[in-house]
Design a protein around this nucleic acid. Structure first.
Length: 205
DNA sequence: AGAACGATCGACT
DNA sequence: GTCGATCGTTCTA
């Protein structure tokens, strides 16, 4: 199964965050594929970024994952009830990662809906807000800190170029524009709050 | 041991 | 737009 290699994750984090847009996140779960197209990301770089958990190479039990080789999953609990999925980037020892903020469903949609909403009815509001947030992505893909440290070159969680790579029809290409702006929820991070390290795809009119 | 806080979400006004 | 939920992580002592 074609998937992005460790080299893909090993370079500059800001570039990798942009390169991940449009790629497909795949999770093998209970013998099924859950998949979604990545549409929003953020870059975090320990070397120079006060918003990064591993700012200035800070090592704690939690940030150990960020010091792994590129191409591992960094998943942590936030606000006591949600999780955030990141991909470790840069050469090993440079703590940095790309946060996955939003995806569009590609495969396993009904299972992801079950994981998100259980038996609650699918309203228009819920469909519109299905996987458009980091906590929602983790809920829909059944990712918790139990999956922290997973190797993205393995079989259970990985990223590929497109739906074709998991045996699905190629999508009809849509006109989309790459946008960037400040990251969400990092107002405490002094000068780093303004870094334009959030990237997303926007449909062209 | 205790306190403060957070890379969020959904309910509600 | 506001606000509470909820608990692991981190820091202070």
């Amino acid at each position: 199964m074609a998937r992005l290699s460790r080299e893909f994750y090993s370079g500059n984090t800001v570039e990798t965050a942009q390169n991940l847009l449009g790629k497909v996140l795949v999770r093998q779960w209970k013998g099924r594929f859950l998949a979604g197209r990545i549409t929003e990301t953020e870059a975090y770089i320990g070397r120079c970024d006060k918003a990064c958990h591993a700012y200035h190479y800070r090592r704690t039990a939690r940030t150990e994952t960020l010091f792994l080789a590129p191409g591992h999953a960094y998943i942590y609990l936030i606000y006591g009830m949600y999780h955030c999925l990141n991909f470790v980037t840069e050469p090993e020892g440079e703590p940095a990662a790309v946060l996955v903020r939003s995806v569009e469903p590609v495969a396993g949609t009904e299972w992801m809906q079950q994981l998100r909403y259980g038996e609650k009815p699918l309203t228009a509001y819920r469909l519109k807000n299905f996987l458009n947030g980091p906590g929602k992505v983790c809920q829909g893909f059944s990712l918790t800190r139990h999956e922290n440290g997973l190797d993205l070159t393995g079989d259970t969680l990985f990223v590929c170029d497109g739906p074709e790579d998991i045996g699905l029809p190629a999508p009809i290409p849509a006109k989309e524009r790459l946008c960037s702006g400040p990251r969400i929820g990092v107002d405490y991070a002094e000068e780093a709050r303004d870094f334009p390290w959030r990237f997303w795809l926007e449909k062209e009119v």
